[in-house]
Amino acid sequence: MSIGVIFVWLALAIYAIIIWKAKIIDKKERKWVILVLALAIAVSVLAMQNMFLNGITSFLGNTFGRITRLVVKI
């Protein structure tokens, strides 16, 4: 596990504790907090496993990038 991921998890844990203890979120906002925390942990795990999401950028390269290549020879 890299030091970066450990730091991020620690920072997120402190954030969650502060948010919960200080009671600055209501019931409606709680689901959003859980969602963003889960997403942040998920992307940090992906980064730790070197699982890149470059399929998205490759797709954009094949679509919009092709339009550019039609106009300009790069």
């Binding site: 991020v8 906002e29 963003v36 997403l39």
Partner: peptide
Amino acid sequence: KFMFPISFI
């Protein structure tokens, strides 16, 4: 309130 975790995402 959500900006901190979103920024890491």
